[in-house]
Nucleic acid binder design. Structure first.
Lengths: 220, 220, 220, 220
DNA sequence: CATGAATGAGCTTTCATTCAT
DNA sequence: TATGAATGAAAGCTCATTCAT
């Protein structure tokens, strides 16, 4: 929400022309995603955005907060995407397939966000990190856990499993899929395991992952 | 092997008293694990090790090579640990439990190595990273894939799955378990999902993960 | 020319107030001249110029390029001074006297440039040094050689000498005069030979050197 | 003399086996000549000499004194060479030719000494530099001045010249010849002027230089 | 005596951040 | 508001010198 982010940027940023604001965010996102926090320089972002360093500091208190904002932005988008899938009343298997396809598509389309997310998980503790993990993961956790719990009641999923833990395992699977699509290291790892370029493996991924999940959850 | 690492440190380092060498490595490992490559300063490592900057450069060509050495060290240890589990002729479920317990124990005992590994997955490509991912992952990949393939033949695992891909999914599960034990972000995430501190969740993890895998692989 | 130097400094340097730019160059010239390249520290130059280290790096890519710029500057000035003397249609003896007096004056007024030039002759080869020697010396070489050749035709100089080699010897004489005025070692050496402080020896130098050259070239 | 140098090295150096002592001096001379004082590292000298850093410091108080010793050594050799020529009772022209040929030969055979000498003239003032110039130049100065004075009396050289100043000019010519043979910058300069490689120009040099000096001094 | 590991001051260079224009 | 020059702390790294073995 805007209010939650309000401390992350200054009022001036809000008043910027849409185009300019987007441009700055796009450049910053790419830079942070490609080079990591420490290796990204404010000067570079300014240059590539066609603005001055001074301006960046007029919009954001400092580098850390710009990074935070960028990250939150990306995660909100991802969150949004997931939330749109949630309410559907479909068969759980079909829903799973939708999620997988959506995540794959998102990771391909906006790999910077996934890279950013991945790099986030590595950063040392900082004021804002804790809060972030809280917020980001909480949404997915709750959706998955509830979905599983409900499915247990409807008999779609067996009852001898811990919904929360299985939600956690489920999200692990999804997270790794995303990383495998967007992050160099995980990309290479995917190739080492499967012998396929992740770019051309959508169907393999969907099919096998569903097979895996279906059995794991004992979907009917 | 020593020969593979021989270019990473200088002869002087080898001749150091055991205690001192270990101390330096321990400090450096912690620093890199906690702060990442860029935020770790050689001066800090020197101070905390009780030696001088000059000495570090007598032992290692530069910061990058020290980091590389530290990382290789850790990964060798992990590799070793895994390889020791591999040859056993036991029931696949028992083997899986052993692996899980071993990884949990390792991650608790040497969280720095896991953190380091995790941070590695984020770093931009560097000369040595590619080679590393190749080596580290390849070992696990081959072990898991073969184990699954064999289990398919013995009927322990169903035949309709792609062994390589399932090996990949299996390792995803294991990787995330390790991260969840050792890395702050993933730790928090585990808590958000399960409501339990990962430190006290060994039995939950083992039980549920086995349940999950057993079903997924359709273990008999 | 400006274009030739344009790669040596950054645009920011050009925009500096005249006074500040001059100050920085003066300080840097003195430091390099007095201490040589290696013993000159950027921090010292910054302090003595009343600016920050960071600023120096805003003006010049690095120490080497600052040095190069300083040297080129000085050599251009010297070159300029010599070129102004060349075109005159005067008697060759008068011209020689003018050159000697000009070089003495220049060496007294801007000893740093001569010291710098002298120190240059010692430095190990570097990318730019070769080019420089080529350029600096080539101008003088060509002027002197042609002047001698012409004087041979007009009968002012005897015909049995190799113009190029005599030009070389002539420049040797001039070079040493300059060094003797500006560089500590050569200054001392002048005193040892003549018993006079070079500072007060203008007339002696002019008179005797002309005597020497006149006879050597057999000027009429 | 040994006594004059006695403060430059420690007693231990004297007791070294001839071969070892020579080896160290040879290596040090080359290093200093090729890289200059600042760019020569004690460690390199030690390594190339096959001894330890510690040993060097057992022989010489510090880098500066080692350098000083090396330089004095070289200059003594040069001095020696010149002194051997002095006492001859020959025709002054023949003597001049001998000197030129000797200097050329020496510069070719031991270019390191000349390079070292050249680099000396550049160094900023230091305790020992003044003394050196005093000693080195004084010998040549006195020999040349006296020779000229005597030649004036015998009528070999015209009487209207200042013997000391002409001795100075004479030595200038000789000095530049040596530099031109041994030092990169001056080598290149020679080529620019004459179009010949200095290595193959002995006869040109001797012939033209004598022509020059003969006329300059009005040798009969 | 010889060794070479240890030291730490000092160097060049970068970059987040400030602030006068 | 926008700019970008100025700042200076802090980093990686080198090397003359010392000293325990």
């Amino acid at each position: 929400m805007a209010t939650e982010n309000s401390q992350l940027y200054k009022a001036t940023f809000e008043n910027l022309p849409e185009e300019k604001r987007k441009r700055i965010l796009r450049v910053a996102t790419e830079e942070f995603a490609d080079n990591g926090f420490e290796n990204t320089s404010i000067l570079q972002i300014a240059k590539k955005s066609g603005i001055s360093v001074g301006s960046i500091y007029k919009y954001f208190e400092n580098k850390e907060l710009l990074f935070t904002y960028i990250v939150r932005e990306g995660l909100s988008t991802l969150e949004q995407t997931l939330l749109e899938l949630a309410p559907s009343e479909e068969d759980i298997l079909i829903k799973a397939e939708k999620i997988i396809r959506t995540l794959l598509a998102f990771s391909k389309e906006k790999p910077e966000f996934i890279k950013l997310y991945c790099s986030l998980t590595t950063r040392g503790n900082s004021e804002f990190l804790d809060g972030l993990s809280q917020r980001i993961e909480a949404v997915a956790a709750s959706i998955y856990t509830q979905t599983i719990a409900i499915a247990q009641e409807t008999g779609e999923v067996r009852k001898d499993v811990n919904p929360a833990f299985f939600a956690y395992l489920l999200d692990n699977v999804f997270m790794m899929l995303q990383f495998s699509v967007a992050c160099p290291y995980y990309k290479e790892r995917f190739y080492i395991y499967t012998g396929n370029q992740v770019e051309n493996s959508d169907e393999l991924i969907v099919e096998q992952t569903l097979l895996f999940l279906k059995a794991a959850f004992n979907f009917k």
